[in-house]
């Protein structure tokens, strides 16, 4: 059981980082960047490519993370800002970010080829045994990075003036602008942070998955599912969704069957959306929401009978 929990939390931390990347962008701009998974892929492919070319691992990773961060900003200027300037209530970003995702994926497939490539082992070689369960240092690092990301973001959001301006932009961008906030600068920062978080997820999962141009689809979808489970309104809730999804997926693989994690997350998200449509952690009280959701459903069923 402890093994399921540790393995689930480590993979869940990666899902959570991708979900946070979605959520940070949505929090500030109300846009869902459907190329988030491809930002993860950019970091993985570039890190793997540079490492293969002989660069030290730390330098390859730094360049990979910088590239995914920069790519996030480019996506804002190429695929989001123009359509919002044309019509700020437009949903055209939905198609334009998907278009960018396809372009990035195809470009990576052309440059690196469609097959998987090696990724630096990093800390994946060393094991730690806790209470009979084993975890690699790479997996432990994923959990630590997730905790640092959530705590760091929440401290920034709640304790700094810039974070509070971000909250103001999130709740009323026009009014925030009317008090002097530079909404565009915050949008750029949100896309950059989204790119960095997705890139970090890529570097953390790379030693396990290896480098493949099509990884973006897999982790983009899983990250989005985690976002829906946790709640889209708060980045910390998105991370919570990732951790829950990770534990449930590993649990499904262990107790149901080795391929169960392919379909189980979608069952979970359907159940969660039925019982708590805003996500498990949207209001900060998952159990209360879940209980009230179950209560409502039961009452409805009784009424129907």
């Amino acid at each position: 059981m402890l093994q399921v929990l540790l393995s689930g939390l480590s993979i869940g931390a990666v899902y959570g980082l991708v979900a946070m990347a979605f959520a940070v962008v949505f929090y500030v701009t109300r846009v869902i960047n459907f190329a988030t998974g491809q930002l993860l892929m950019v970091a993985i492919m570039l890190t793997a490519g540079l490492s293969k070319a002989g660069l030290p691992d730390w330098l390859s990773i730094s360049v990979g993370l910088t590239a995914s961060t920069a790519a996030g900003v480019v996506i804002y200027f190429v695929a989001v800002r123009p359509v919002l300037r044309f019509d700020r209530f437009s949903f055209a970003w939905l198609v334009s970010t998907l278009g960018v995702a396809i372009v990035l994926q195809s470009a990576a497939a052309i440059i690196y080829g469609p097959t998987s490539q090696g990724f630096p082992k990093l800390l994946n070689r060393d094991n730690l045994v806790i209470g009979g369960a084993s975890i690699t240092l790479q997996e432990l690092l994923a959990i630590i990075v997730a905790v640092v990301a959530v705590v760091g973001f929440e401290i920034f959001r709640r304790r700094t003036l810039f974070g509070k301006v971000g909250m103001a932009i999130s709740s009323d961008p026009e009014m925030a602008s009317a008090i002097g906030a530079r909404v565009t600068a915050y949008a750029v920062a949100a896309f950059a942070i989204g790119g960095l978080l997705a890139g970090a997820a890529g570097v953390l999962i790379g030693p396990i998955t290896y480098a493949n141009p099509y990884l973006g689809d897999t982790y983009g979808i899983t990250g989005f599912v985690a976002l829906m489970i946790g709640g889209i309104e708060r980045p910390a809730a998105a991370m919570g969704g990732g951790l829950v999804l990770g534990v449930l997926s590993v649990g499904a693989n262990t107790f149901i069957g080795s391929q169960a994690s392919d379909w189980f997350p979608f069952v979970v998200v359907v159940v969660v959306l039925l019982l708590a449509p805003h996500g498990l952690f949207a209001s900060g009280d998952a159990l209360k929401r879940l209980a009230s959701g179950i209560g409502r459903r039961t009452a409805t069923l009784k009424g129907a009978n």
Binding site: L161, V165, M167, A168, A176, G180
Partner: peptide
């Protein structure tokens, strides 16, 4: 500076935070 119709305070923030945000610049 504008007081808009319906006030449009940042409701998820404290009164003091709302005030300090007004003096952002």
């Amino acid at each position: 500076a504008l007081v808009p119709e319906g006030r449009r305070l940042f409701l998820d923030q404290s009164v003091e935070d709302n005030l300090r945000l007004g003096g952002l610049h």
